[in-house]
């Protein structure tokens, strides 16, 4: 089932309601994330070969799940890995591998391409890669500096997420004001924050 505009709309609608997404790097934070009002949970670290029950629990709490293909254990960042995540029930897949974005969409999931801010000299190539990848959403890292570098970036055709070192409401609000439609954070204090 190819990703449709409806899939993406459903995903971004959650962000409209609650722009803060919970980023999980350990299972012990899962209960807190499930109890929080976030609409989307980003699974950054987990056993990729045992995702199905985790994703089922998140869905049971009426939340969407985005899985980081490059960081989870046991899964290779290739097309077969993408198919595995689809079978596990992921709603969205995050990766820095632009060439996998079409495969993610073909599996009916929202494709999120990570844009890594290293230095200005590499920004143009990174932007070109995200434009070429056909991603549904671009996630900027470290998101906390998005307000500072946004002026260097042209308007993108797709929505922006921001993640990385966003720990306070002030930082989150600044990132949203810079044009992001949502933030991903492991800071629990933000999961319940009313950012809009």
């Amino acid at each position: 089932m190819p990703a449709t505009d409806a899939n993406v709309r459903a995903f971004t609608a959650r962000l409209d309601e609650r722009p803060c997404c919970a980023a999980l790097v350990a299972h012990e934070r899962l209960d807190a994330a499930l109890a929080s009002p976030v609409g989307i949970i980003f699974v950054l670290r987990a056993d990729g070969l045992a995702l199905r029950p985790l994703i089922a629990r998140i869905h049971a709490a009426d939340k969407l799940v985005a899985v980081h293909l490059d960081l989870i254990d046991g899964i290779r960042a290739d097309r077969a890995g993408v198919r595995w995540l689809s079978g596990a029930g992921a709603d969205a897949v995050i990766s820095s591998h632009g060439q996998l974005m079409p495969a993610i969409r073909r599996e009916g999931m929202v494709a999120i391409h990570r844009l890594l801010l290293v230095r200005r000299g590499l920004l143009e190539a990174a932007l070109a890669a995200t434009a070429k990848s056909g991603a549904d959403i671009v996630e900027v890292l470290p998101g906390v500096i998005l307000p500072e570098v946004r002026a260097l970036m042209p308007s993108l055709r797709v929505p922006l997420l921001a993640g990385g070192f966003i720990r306070t409401e002030a930082q989150a609000r600044a990132v949203l004001a810079a044009g992001a439609i949502g933030v991903t954070t492991s800071a629990e204090n933000l999961w319940s924050a009313a950012l809009r």
Binding site: L117, V118, R119, P142, V144, I145, V149, F165, R167, Q171
Partner: peptide, 11 residues
Amino acid sequence: VSPGPVLDHLL
């Protein structure tokens, strides 16, 4: 450390 401005945001 890259990007440099991130130092402003580290604890």
